[in-house]
Design a protein around this nucleic acid. Structure first.
Lengths: 256, 256
DNA sequence: CGGTCAGTTGAGAACTTTCAACATGGGTGG
DNA sequence: CCACCCATGTTGAAAGTTCTCAACTGACCG
């Protein structure tokens, strides 16, 4: 069930029962499960269907010739990978699982049909795509201009808020099922420095991290210290005016 | 004239005379000129029309509370800013001019009409959008995992190849009309370190940089030393099979 | 001619990496 | 059940990279 995707999209706009069942059907077509460190798709492959993460964490990543490796973005449950890559001939990066991952493969055709018939889904997927782009931009700022503690704190804020948006937090806690080396690959830091930075954040009481559970006792404090501004996640319900009526209005199609 | 945009898009697919005149007309509707350090649009503003850079360099950027500043991407002549941001309510970053900039404002409605009537333009704009996203991802890798000399070399390769794609190079040379501080803001480095890194690149004969003119005597050498892999620019003419026939085929609309 | 902006230089400080060793915990085979 | 193994996390110390600060140069402009 793409419950999490639906939940995420409803942060932006309400979906009708029909919209939801269409997403349901699309996500039910084909399902796969892979283990950690396995790839969903590799650099150089021909991009095929769209993948919807149902459970587990995955990431985009790229490796340099000499082995250096950078995680470009995280995919959390409810995230769609690459709604439109099929326009390009080859993947310029890989997508791999960080934990065991269950995902749905949605064919291009199915997605095209769903969006053609459900303008509000189209609009919501646009929002999702644009937010994903905004996250990528924010990572540029994060890697370019924040020192290690801010950078890592910023990432944890982002992850917590994204997970909260799909209902995967409990109180002030959520899972953080990745290794410190993974965090390093994402933040452009060494695993050793990630370790020390986590200790620093723990020491100042900003986070509690034991095993794979992260607790952020005071999210506002962590946000402040990490110079985190949630604007870029665009959680301000642009589509709220659509809530009342089920009929969609003014939904564009095409890239314009 | 959006000649440069057309030239860029034709790296991906051929456009018909009709396609081109439609872009021409769209870009001719409204034109503005601003000086360096002026903003085209600011964080928090309501995104309006789509901007097409006709001349000069601009950038996306973001400022942190304490004044730290990061350039998120460069806009070169022929680049479109934000084909779809209107879905979002507010800009989460600013776009500003680095040099005097002339740009065309294309209204949402105009762009929607052009894409509805010209499927091949739609397809080409998709390609452009996806390449822009790929560039953003590559910057993540660049900031996260390349040391200063590689990072700067990588940027110079990218800029040179992008400018070459719109015909703005001459032999091994192109303009580089930004300050060292701008390069620092883009690469997450201090202006002092940019200065020293440029000297290092000059010293190894990889670049010649005088005034605002950049020469890369041996692009392959700079690419090798910077671990630059041009795949992410997707210049492999995916649409080549469309060249023969003027009629478009299999062009999707909507985000699927 | 003074002022401003961009570029350059030196030196010390700050941040981050590397390397190597050690600790911990869960899982597996004997 | 225990011994071992391996992945992950932790620590110390030295090395390397990058930053900051501050001064100085050169070019352009009014």
């Amino acid at each position: 069930m793409p419950d999490l995707l639906i939940r995420k999209l409803e942060q932006f706009t309400r979906l009708s029962a029909l919209d939801k069942s269409a997403l349901d059907a699309a996500a039910g077509e084909k399902r796969r499960r892979i283990g950690p460190r396995e790839d969903i798709i590799r650099e150089g492959d021909n991009p095929g269907q769209v993948n919807l993460i149902l459970d587990g964490w995955a990431c985009r990543y790229k490796q340099l010739r000499d082995g250096r490796q950078q995680i470009i973005s995280f995919f959390l449950p409810g995230d769609l990978c690459d709604t439109h890559v099929h326009v390009l001939r080859r993947m310029d990066h890989s997508i791999g699982a960080l934990t065991p991952v269950t995902f749905a493969e949605i064919s291009r055709e199915t997605l095209a049909r769903v969006t053609a018939e459900h303008p509000r889904i189209t609009q919501a997927l646009w929002w999702d795509t644009l937010v994903a782009a905004a996250i990528q931009r924010e990572w540029t700022v994060n890697l370019g201009r924040r020192i290690a503690a801010e950078r890592l704190g910023h990432l944890l804020c982002e992850i917590f808020i994204r997970l909260r948006g799909v209902g995967l937090t409990e109180g002030h806690s959520c899972v953080l099922p990745v290794t410190q080396a993974d965090l390093g690959d994402a933040m452009g830091l060494s695993n050793v420095h990630i370790n020390r930075t986590l200790q620093e954040l723990r020491g100042s009481g900003l986070i509690v991290l034991k095993g794979r559970q992260l607790t952020i006792p005071n999210l506002n404090a962590l946000m402040r210290d990490s110079l985190f501004n949630p604007n870029y996640l665009h959680l301000d319900r642009v589509g709220r005016h659509l809530d009342a009526n089920e009929a969609s209005s003014q939904v564009s199609s095409g890239p314009a």
